[in-house]
Structure formats: structure tokens, C-alpha cells
Design a binder for these strands. Structure first.
Lengths: 186, 186, 186, 186
DNA sequence: ACTTAATCGAGACGGTACGTCCCGTCTTTTA
DNA sequence: TAAAAGACGGGACGTACCGTCTCGATTAAGT
């Protein structure tokens, strides 16, 4: 009954990975450095994860960094604002930003990380559905509006504004975005 | 009047850079390989660009890959659809996708590439403004709607859907997105 | 109990080093070339020796090129002549000359090689002492004569004549030198 | 009568060469650095001297570093001591040591520098001959003793002691050396 | 003063080797 | 017998100088 599902010092490894990711960014996250910092031999890392990305994916899954609170404020606008605020925080907070941004932008070219992102967003969508069900029940949402599209517009706008346009996204921006989307979807 | 503004074989270098980027992706784009393929010495590359990113940025600026047609279809909806289609094409066409995606996702962590992206979007926004002016003149746009927000929503949704959610974005998706945004902004 | 004390292919490395030294001289002895010829990766060389000089020093220590026979011919004159002949051979023989000359002349400016030379001469002096003890016992040597001085004069003359003056040093020269020194020391 | 025999800024070049030689040693004496420091273009250096060694040889010939005073103290012992002291000073003084040692040890493998050394020693021997003529006249020297051999023994001993054995050579050493040689040659 | 040839400066270039970093693999110990 | 230790081949990095080349700009005569 010794079916191990990870190395003995898994926690130290994950911790080291997150630290180094935060310190140096994705590209300078070196397996050798993770090994050194976590007090584990490089060989051990390769035994359990075939690549840096696989290790990082496992680390992120383990980290809860992508945790998500599904709000229930009583109104669709409130719920969407809450979600938007969460996304913004994820992308800007000191704690989460390095890992989150690194992971998600690396995604498209990195199958393992892409999978992390995809499953994160899929899971998230699933859990966000009640928001839209409640809104529909309240009559706040036009029938036939695709919740996924709403989330794409909202999350995409924040993402785009912050990372591609290099701009800022304050509370006011969030409100305007939510209101515009809502106006189109209500 | 022969003030040089780049290496003598600049064209060969840019071509090699683009090819290798398309073939191997950003991370495997090696300066040594660019040198070898373009028939230039590694030293020459370092003489002109301090880093891979700087070289890539110059290449992209030179490439016209980010070229943009500002549409004028007679209706805001038509214009936005055209723009959205262009964005989609940029992100998915075999020609442009590798370079564009690589550049833009690398952006946030790479000052030089980020600058390329930012200036691209800034320039683009400037050129798109007439779309909104015409729309306002036609009465298709509510006063006080921020064109930048509209573009953030629209472009962000496409971007998000394709690269983060890992989904597909067909013409129908574009239409829905445009319509939703328009409904909120009209 | 196989604590490694050098790379696995140490022999091939030393051989390549000596060959290249003989072929091209000290200054063109390139670590990359040693790596290539010995079928070892450059990295491996740097793992074991921090510099070209350290590698060369190890090679020379391993090579036995500086091996020394302490003669016992029955007379001080005979012994000194034998030693002088050995020195001459070391400096002129095709086998030894490139390495020996390169090492010893590089010495003053190269700590590692200087150390090789110094320890070689120190060891040598130790082993030559019996020559002088026997000579003293035979009454061939004035009391109070410093053996080191005798060797400095003798070896220095050969060395100076050959390498600095650019002259030749045949058997006759050796005899004259030995006789002059002896006359002053007897 | 404008046959130039050197570049216009020859002095600055020679000065820079000597300085850099003293600062960094022979091996780090870079032509590019000489050019930079002397305010001359690299091309100019190559126009006049085909190699680092040729430049260095010219510099040394120009420098007078190897200047030599032939003593006349009234006794052979005094003259030889004076010469030995000069040699010692040449090899140890802060001013001369770097250049002299570098040049002479580089000699054997460097035709141009070897030539500098050889002609230096040849010239020197010529000028030292009177010492031995006077000594013979005074009856201080056995007939048939080769002055060159005497100088080889003496100079060689100092050289050997200092540079190969890595030892020291104080006034006492010089006296012992001179006396031993003299005893054998008187 | 004017020309004219020697000399120089500026700058780009191909090239070799450097010493380093980190990769992913493999062999050999050790617990 | 699984883990850790550690040596290894390999690829690319970014740098330092090398020695060469072309082409304008200086200079310093000789007329």
C-alpha cells in the first residue's frame, strides 16, 4: 500500500517553485534552482514531473491560488462586479499576479499550463452558472444570452486592458464594463 | 548620407527571425540560430540589438504583421464586425498567429515586446476613433460611451475565448459579441 | 570507495592537452579544442579545472614529463654533468621541450604553472642533495658551499644560454660550465 | 624627406602599450585597449605593426627600459657585482619588472620578442667585454675563460633563482654567486 | 594657396574562444 | 529497491578581441 502519489518533500518543492516563480518570473524559473531551494535532488524532480511546466502545473493546482468565491449579492450587477473585482485582484495583487500572469500568458504555447488555465476557466464557469440562473429567475437577464459570452466580454476586457493595452483598471472601469455588458444583456 | 540605421543584412535577419519564430516558437527562438540562418555573425546581432526581445521587436515593427485596415462599412455594427474579424484572423491565421500570439503573450513580462504591443494598440485605437465618430454622427452610439471600453470588451472577448479559455471563435461568436456590446452601447 | 578524483576520461583529456600543447604552443592551447579532441564536453573540463592553467598543471603533474633521475656516477663532476645533460635534454628534446618550455616560461605570470615549476624544482633539489652529501664525504666539495647555489648557477646557465641568449648548448658547453662551477666550489 | 617611420602618435601609442603591459601583463595586453587609450584607431596600429608582439617589440626598443651601464669599479669582482645588481634590479624593480619579465619569458615562443631579447643580450655582451679585458690585464682572470660563460652562469643564476625557483635573491646571494663564479674563473 | 598622396578615423563585419547557465540523461552509491 | 548524489553531453548564452575591410576626412608636404 505504498502507492506514492508524489515525492516526500512535495510541499517544500511546491513552496520553492512558487517562491522562485514570484521572484524571477516564469522564464527564469529553473528546475535546478527549485531542487536547490527545496533541498531535493534534481533527479527527484524529473522522476515526478517530466518538465518545468508539469511541475508548475502541479504546483498551481496544489496552491489554491486560483481559488474562487462565487458571489451572491442579490443582483446580477452586484455579482458581476464582485467577479470582476476578483479577477482584477488576481491579476494585480502582489501575491497572485506573478504566478497567475505567468501561467496564463504562457498557456497558449505550453500544453500543460494551458490545461491548467482551461480547466480553471471551465470549472469557474460551471460554478458561475448559478449567478446567471438566479439572474434569469429575477428577470435580470434576457433569455438566450450566453453566460459564457458575458464572462468572456467581462474578463476579456479586464485582461486586455491590463496586460495588452498596458493600461490601468480601476473600480470605475469595472463598473463601466459591467454596466455596458449588462445593458447589452439585460 | 549613408548613416546606417541597422545592419547591412537587416532584411535577411528579419526574415530569419520570423521564420524561426514561426517554426519553433518564441522560447526556442535562438539568436545563434538567427545568425546562422541569416548568414550573419552572432556578434553582428548583438551589435545592433541587446537582446532577443529587442531583435524580435524590431523584426515585428519591420514586418507589417500588425498592419491594420480601418473599415468603413457604413454602420457601426459592420465596422465592429470587420474589426473583430481582423483580430480573429490575426490570432488564428497561419501567417500571423505564431508571431502575434508569441509577442502578445510574452508582452507582460518582456518590456520590449510589451512596448510593441502597447504601441500597436495605441496606434490602433487612434485609427479606430473615426469609426466611433461616424457612429456617433449617425446616432448609433449613445453619448458618453468610451470607445476604448468598447474595443476592450470586443477584443478582450476574442482574445480571452481563444487563448485563455482555449475555445473556438467562429463568425457566430463574433456576431454575438458585437451585438451584445452594441446593445449595451447603443 | 571510488571517490572520484577527476573526470572519467581523465587520460584522454591529459593526452589531448599534451598533444595540443606540443602542436600549437601554450597560447593556442584552447580548452574547446581539448574538449573536442578528447571527446569530452567543455563543461566537464570546467567542472574539474577552473582554468586552462589548472588543467595544464594537472596534465603536467600526471605526465611524468618532469621525471628526474638522480645520478650517482662516483664523482661530483660526473653527477653534475649527468644532471646538466638531463636539463639540456628536457629543454631541447622534441618530446619534452614544448611542454617544459611553455610551462616554465609561463610560470612567472601564471600562479598555477609557477607552482608546478616551483614544486618541481623544490622536489628536485631535495632529491639532488645526496649528490652533494656524497661529494662532501669524498672531499670534493668545500664546506660551506650551498648546493642550491651550485644548481642555480648550473641550471641557470643552460637555461639562459638556450632560451634568452638564443644560443646553443652542446656537450662542450656543459663541461665548461660544470668545470667552472666546480673550480669555484671545490 | 617625409618618409615617415611610424604613426604620428607613436609616443602616445608606446606609452599606452607600456602602461597596459604593466597593468595587466602580457596576455591581457590587447591591441584594442592600446588603441583606445592612445586615442588612435585600431586600424592605425595594424597599419604599422602586424601583431601585438611587433608593437611590443617596437615599444620596448623605444623605451630604453633595457638600458645598461657598463661598470668600471677597478676590480672584476666589483664589476660583476655591479652587473649582477643591475640584472636583479631589472627583474625586480616596479618600473621594469613587468615589461622585462613579460618580454623575456614570452621570448622563446615569440619570434619578435625573442629577437628583442637576443639583440639585447648580444649588444650587452659586446659592451661588457671590456670588463673582462681589463680583468685579464689586471691578472684577475685565468686565460681561456669564456666571458660569455661567466655571464651565462651569473645572469642565469639570478634569473633561475627568481623566476623558476620562485625564490628571493638578495645582495648576499649575488655576492655568493659572484664569488663562486670568480673562484672558478680566476 | 593648391593640390595630391600619405595617413588616419569611423564603423561594420566575420570569426574564435571564452566562461557560464541550465537542460535532461545516466551511472553509481547509500540508506 | 527506491532515493539521492553527482558526473556527463549538450545547446545557447552574452562577451572580448581578433584581424579585415571600405570609405570619407585630415594632414602636410611640394609646387
Amino acid at each position: 500500500m505504498s502507492t506514492q502519489n508524489g515525492p516526500r518533500k512535495a510541499e517544500a518543492i511546491f513552496a520553492a517553485t512558487l517562491e522562485l516563480l514570484a521572484e524571477n518570473g516564469y522564464d527564469k524559473l529553473a528546475i535546478e534552482a527549485v531542487a536547490a531551494r527545496s533541498g531535493v535532488n534534481k533527479t527527484t524532480l524529473y522522476r515526478w514531473w517530466p518538465s518545468k511546466d508539469a511541475l508548475l502545473a502541479a504546483t498551481l493546482r496544489d496552491s489554491g491560488l486560483f481559488a474562487l468565491d462565487v458571489p451572491d449579492t442579490g443582483s446580477l450587477r452586484g455579482d458581476l462586479l464582485a467577479v470582476a473585482t476578483q479577477i482584477l485582484r488576481l491579476l494585480t495583487s502582489e501575491h497572485t499576479s506573478p504566478a497567475v500572469v505567468a501561467t496564463l500568458t504562457a498557456g497558449p504555447r505550453r500544453p500543460e499550463l494551458g490545461e491548467v488555465a482551461r480547466s480553471f476557466f471551465a470549472d469557474r464557469m460551471t460554478r458561475e452558472e448559478p449567478i446567471f440562473e438566479r439572474a434569469t429567475a429575477r428577470g435580470e437577464l434576457r433569455a438566450g444570452v450566453d453566460p459564457v459570452l458575458v464572462m468572456d466580454l467581462l474578463a476579456g476586457a479586464i485582461w486586455f486592458r491590463l496586460l495588452l493595452r498596458g493600461g490601468e483598471a480601476g473600480p470605475q472601469f469595472l463598473e463601466e464594463a459591467v454596466d455596458t455588458v449588462l445593458a447589452g444583456a439585460a
